[in-house]
């Protein structure tokens, strides 16, 4: 059911993956299938830009990474910790323990040409995935035990994981009832148990960096879109995240304000921040990205360095898309 395979990654892996999305599917209800198997690893220091046509699932994918949307299938790992339930289809050893597998193996009739045991196994597993045959309730004790073991050894509460994953929204979403200062200091004080003085000092430093220290006591309604978005970035930075997710951060801005926000983002990129950016700003993608993904119809259609991505696109749909936007 998915292309992403795990080779016992849950066995105490120490990769430098900050985000590892494995075989993400997302359905809304029965019929709306938005993501159809996306796998993506994001390493420390990478700046991944995601582009694609409207409605292709870019936001949905980004929001799956910090579980604002729960994937229907697949697993999300943040800093080698699992934040979604275990997806049995991603673990061959789990499937092999299932009653469904045992039944199919016993019933298996070898073909005329002799097949190796390994080939038979692959075939049955592929069949189980394709037909979505696993049912938690009927797979037996050994299956359940391994599922639980994987979960217990790797699971981390999403609220904890999110502290390290900042997000910047298209609509800014500054807290309307709080001043700029309180917007920035709320989470560090509440979650990192930072003292008020420390939090205020840190917020002031960050605000100074973006030239908005004089707005500390303003309320969001008193700010321009560009100012709001820069403060939203600072609010995320105040938690010292390991990665920042941006969902079309400049799309809701008046054209004259796009530059000031992109400048802050470029500065962040230069400082080594790991970033995942959904955007329509092709200039930004070329200049800042270390890798560009093209998502269309819920899958990654192409993935490359910006040079090759824009200079020599392979996928016809990407070529078509680029010819329209460039």
């Amino acid at each position: 059911m998915t292309s992403a395979e795990s080779n016992n990654l849950y066995a105490a892996s120490h990769s430098d993956d900050i985000i590892n999305a494995k075989g993400i599917y997302k359905n809304f209800g029965e019929n709306v299938k938005v993501l159809k198997g996306i796998s993506c690893e994001i390493k420390r220091g990478e700046r991944v830009v995601i582009i694609g046509p409207s409605g292709s699932g870019k936001s949905t994918f980004l929001r799956c990474l910090n579980l604002l949307e729960e994937p229907t299938y697949g697993e999300v790992w943040l800093e080698d910790k699992l934040v979604t339930p275990v997806d049995p289809y991603l673990h061959k050893d789990v499937i092999e323990l299932s009653k469904t597998y045992c039944k199919l193996r016993n019933e298996y009739k070898p073909g005329i040409i002799g097949e190796s045991e390994e080939e038979i196994k692959e075939k049955i597993i592929a069949d189980i995935k394709k037909r979505d045959l696993l049912h938690e309730k009927h797979e037996g004790k050994a299956y359940k035990a391994l599922m639980k073991k994987i979960y217990d050894e790797n699971y981390i509460n999403i609220n904890l994981a999110r502290q390290k994953v900042g997000m910047v929204f298209q609509q800014f979403n500054l807290f309307e009832n709080l001043t700029v200062m309180d917007n920035i200091t709320l989470a560090p004080m509440k979650l990192l148990k930072m003292s008020k003085e420390d939090a205020v000092k840190k917020a002031t430093d960050l605000l100074t960096r973006i030239g908005l220290a004089d707005k500390a006591n303003a309320y969001p309604v008193q700010l321009s879109g560009g100012q709001k978005q820069r403060i939203a970035i600072v609010r995320a930075l105040a938690m010292d995240p390991d990665v920042l997710l941006f969902d079309e951060p400049t799309s809701a801005l008046d054209p004259e304000m796009v530059g000031e926000v992109l400048d802050v983002m470029k500065e962040l990129a230069e400082s080594g921040m790991t970033m995942v950016v959904v955007t329509h700003e092709m200039g930004f993608a070329r200049e800042v990205a270390s890798r560009v993904l093209f998502i269309d119809e819920g899958v990654i259609m192409e993935e490359n360095t910006p040079d090759k991505f824009f200079g020599d696109p392979q996928n016809p749909r990407l070529r078509d898309f680029l010819s329209k936007v460039l």
Binding site: N66, L68, N159, L160, A161, R162, Q163, V165, G166, M167, F169, Q171, N173, L174, F175, E176, L186, A187, K190, L191, A232, R235, A236, M239
Partner: peptide, 17 residues
């Protein structure tokens, strides 16, 4: 606006907070 909830949750704040 539901964005207010999402922004809070995305920072790591719990639902009650």
């Amino acid at each position: 606006n539901f964005g207010q909830t999402e922004a809070g949750r995305a920072l790591g704040l719990s639902y009650p907070v």
